[in-house]
């Protein structure tokens, strides 16, 4: 056993990368759920984004274009969910699961000709002397631009929900759609926008996996990240800042357990592999216990049909 081999600076730097796809997908899903819609199809939208982004980046040579198309791809798939749940009033849980099944299938179909290819590299943001700072430089100022984009997105969503009128309306729709409707807000339209945003974010998260974190295309490569993102939203009790916390905690334990293994810590491997999930549950229980009531948006998963 050689714990000194673990460099905490590098550990933190890599957990930021590991957490980025989850942050992106989770912050999008948070907005969706804030509007009162539960979309369990995050995994399907992520994998679709992963292949759309990968394909476009490979064809065009531009990762930026890839990410843009990944967002669009995710949003398009999300609109399918939107159409079904908002217009045709289907059950959200079932539709979300069907979306995951469909997304996994369709992405594998699209991806058949992209196997075994390396994508163009996503550039590391050049921060000049900042990157050379001891400790802080490596942790904070040495990443690719998507890491900062994800962080900025969390800040934007937080500010949007907290300070803007649009955020207030969104939350109103999620807390009581009948009342929001009575006040003249277009509940369905607002929710569709939220769903599209959620899809776009999930698409970005997926593309981050296929373009930066792995980077290559393989069938089913998101490997459950979408489900983790869903869990992180609940874990964060629907607060943007806590999404960051949750994703870093999860990403951190995932990276740490591999580091502990590599350093030869004599803890059974299966216990280490389970630890990210078990610790997430434990922290969740600690955070929810003692607090009264439920912080979930009141209309989460409920159907809305304007009868007049």
């Amino acid at each position: 056993m050689n714990l000194s081999a673990i460099d905490p600076v590098l550990l933190i730097a890599s957990l930021m990368v590991a957490a980025t796809p989850i942050i992106l997908a989770a912050i999008g899903e948070l907005v969706v759920e804030k509007s009162g819609v539960l979309n369990l199809g995050v995994e399907g939208m992520m994998i679709t984004g992963a292949i759309c982004g990968f394909g476009v980046a490979v064809e065009s040579g531009s990762p930026v274009l890839g990410f843009a198309l990944a967002a669009i791809g995710g949003a398009v798939l999300a609109m399918l969910f939107g159409l079904l749940t908002q217009v045709l009033l289907s059950n959200q849980v079932a539709t979300g699961l069907a979306l995951t099944l469909f997304g996994l299938g369709i992405s594998a179909l699209i991806g058949q000709s992209y196997r075994g290819i390396s994508p163009p590299a996503t550039t590391r943001l050049d921060m000049g002397p900042l990157s050379d700072l001891p400790v802080i430089g490596r942790i904070l100022f040495s990443h690719d631009w998507m890491v900062y984009f994800a962080l900025a997105l969390v800040a934007v969503v937080w500010a949007f929900l907290k300070f803007t009128r649009g955020g207030l309306i969104l939350r109103a729709v999620g807390e009581n759609h009948e009342a929001a409707h009575a006040l003249g807000y277009k509940v369905v339209r607002i929710r569709l926008m939220a769903i599209a945003f959620g899809g776009a974010c999930a698409g970005l998260g997926g593309a981050y996996i296929s373009l930066v974190r792995v980077p290559q295309w393989t069938d089913g490569m998101t490997a459950g990240a979408g489900w983790i993102a869903l869990a992180i939203v609940v874990f964060a009790s629907w607060r943007a800042g806590r999404v960051l916390l949750g994703a870093y905690l999860f990403g951190g334990i995932t990276v740490l357990q591999l580091n502990l293994q590599a350093a030869g810590v004599p803890v059974p491997v299966e216990v280490l592999s389970m630890s990210p999930y078990l610790i997430t549950i434990a922290v969740l229980v600690l955070m929810t216990s003692g607090r009264r009531g439920n912080s979930a948006p009141a209309m989460l998963g409920r159907l809305f049909h304007a009868s007049s």
Binding site: A94, T95, L99, F102, A108
Partner: peptide, 16 residues
């Protein structure tokens, strides 16, 4: 993958 997508479609249509 096409069978998976097909099952997804079936579910979508049933729900729709």
């Amino acid at each position: 993958a096409s069978i998976q997508a097909f099952q997804g479609m079936l579910l979508f249509f049933l729900l729709a």
